[in-house]
Design a protein around this nucleic acid. Sequence first.
DNA 1: AATTTTATATTGTATAGACAAATATACAAT
DNA 2: ATTGTATATTTGTCTATACAATATAAAATT
Lengths: 361, 361
Amino acid sequence: MIIDRNSPIPKYFQLQTWLIEQIEMGVFNANDKIPTEQEFKNLTGLARATIRQAIQNLVSMGYLLRKRRLGTFVIDQRREKQHQTNIGLMIPDIRMGNAPELARGVEDEAARTQHSLILCSTDDLYVKADFHANRLINSSISGVIFIPTAASDDKNYQIIEKFMRRNILVVLADRSLPQIDIDYVTTDNFEGAYRQTEYLIKKGHTRIGIVISTTFNTMRLRLEGYKKALADYNISVNASIIITDSLPYSEERYMHYVTDLLKQRDKMTAIFAGHDRIALLFYSAAKKMGLSIPDDISIVGYDDLPLMTIKLTTTHQPFYEMGQESMRLILRRIRGESGSPQQIVLKSFFVERSSVLQVGK
Amino acid sequence: MIIDRNSPIPKYFQLQTWLIEQIEMGVFNANDKIPTEQEFKNLTGLARATIRQAIQNLVSMGYLLRKRRLGTFVIDQRREKQHQTNIGLMIPDIRMGNAPELARGVEDEAARTQHSLILCSTDDLYVKADFHANRLINSSISGVIFIPTAASDDKNYQIIEKFMRRNILVVLADRSLPQIDIDYVTTDNFEGAYRQTEYLIKKGHTRIGIVISTTFNTMRLRLEGYKKALADYNISVNASIIITDSLPYSEERYMHYVTDLLKQRDKMTAIFAGHDRIALLFYSAAKKMGLSIPDDISIVGYDDLPLMTIKLTTTHQPFYEMGQESMRLILRRIRGESGSPQQIVLKSFFVERSSVLQVGK
DNA sequence: AATTTTATATTGTATAGACAAATATACAAT
DNA sequence: ATTGTATATTTGTCTATACAATATAAAATT
């Protein structure tokens, strides 16, 4: 029985709740015709006005659509969801590195499909990410592109779950997380680093230092690529010229590493800088120490920041495309494409400029 | 009489329309109590259920609030608007120059007050700005921070009017427009350029070239500042070393200007580059021509892009603060602060590095 | 002075019934 | 083949009535 006549809960409300349940449980599906008022009258014994009250409420709540003479129909909620046109982008800092490239990729792809991009900078902090997540949830977004913060994996999972519990689609960009099966888009950091190290080896370098952070798996993969290339060419790894750091990047700290490494430059002929900003520190430090790049030491970077005046050999990561692909992935999910989580790995490409010297031969 | 009993328009609908009119005309103001159902019954002669139907509709439309025993009240629409928490930012390109700084300033200020920032890149084109404007209007924003495009003033007015017609607040940032009295935030481009030119003069330079675009009034003001400084120090202006261009910036075209000017370097000892990107072109071109900065020629830029390795003397514009101030201005307007349009001019500051040589003496 | 009760105004819930409007369908007329 | 007409069905509009729930204010009680 639908209606409990002894309950203190209003009858129209009982009927209304029952109807929502049926719709959400899929008993009444999208576009199904629900019983007519007369049928409900026979079914529940309520007055027609009471039944109308319940149905009217659901109409103004967006569950139902009434058509004269034809009946009352369930509205396709999924289709309605498509009309939510906001997408969140949670990025460490829009001012940092290639963040603007990525944001623009997302934005262009979003605009093409009439979606708006809400920008949130997390500063790589869990608290800020959580704060923004709550705000985004309130402004009813249909999906979010999330670049995990520098906080623990657990904290990042918490953020992701918060969205998922509310049926907000999540795509990770750039950085992925272990032990979570979710859509993500990244670049081939391992391959890129391998290719770049191989290039140094082919240029005659065998003693190659590296300075890299291990905060994110993207960075760890670069380190792995570097090690694998050395191993494949039977070059033994010298732990004293591998400098890693698990803390978030800071210019001062890395300036120390860079200077230290340059002081031991008899140990090596080339250096793999974990990213272009570290490479730039090498340029600054080298200048101070009266060294020339590439004559005294060869440097490669990673990221391909737009540096204009410095001819740094590096690997270009397609951040604009990463933004595009992330957005496209979300759009496919919004359109209802199901299937197991997708991992999209974009090709980066090596950019040879003039920061590496041919040695030997 | 409120209700026309002979009209084919439903009576509940007549009452409903009448009520909306009264509210919008201010007969019933925010928080006013409207007549009770009983009073309406006496007033209109309709059945209570009919009156209820009209009122109920207005409740679900967000006009009215009912309180048991107390009556029915008009909802404060302005207050409701405050709960619209989206702000648009229409910027030429998030990847360009200091756009990320500005965006972050807006974002931080927005987040503090629980507002979300919707990012729109216009590429300085009217069509894209119009496209985004339409989208923003649909996603019901309460305000927009607009950086006028490179299109004609008229076209920019059209965009602004589109927002204003819909009671969406508009604040211009960085660039202002002539003949329109509207809130805007900018920096002291005239003063900044004057200060910088004065610095060159005090360093002993009298023959000072300039390469600058005249697309935006910010740039024109810099040109004015430069001219005023020369005039104040009784230095006659040499038109052949003033290169202006009214088209949007393009690297190739400006590379030509830069190279041309360097070829005539016997005519001058210093150059004012309209912005840092132009200054960088001077570095590139000088390198190619075997010239050294500042030994062969002194350069000053404008903007203070984060260049890391190049020690360019320039003027720093507080873009982050510009974003903050723009957002604060919108917030004050949202909160209902009226009064004539405000023009906020932020102080920029001169940054002396080492791209200028002392000459003479 | 503080607390409890009571009265009362107002919206909330519910029923019963009547007629109107719209529209899909079938059928008839042209 | 098109147009018009009738019919049944379903939602839409409207009236009349009754009692419930609730919050305020006034009154009564402690």
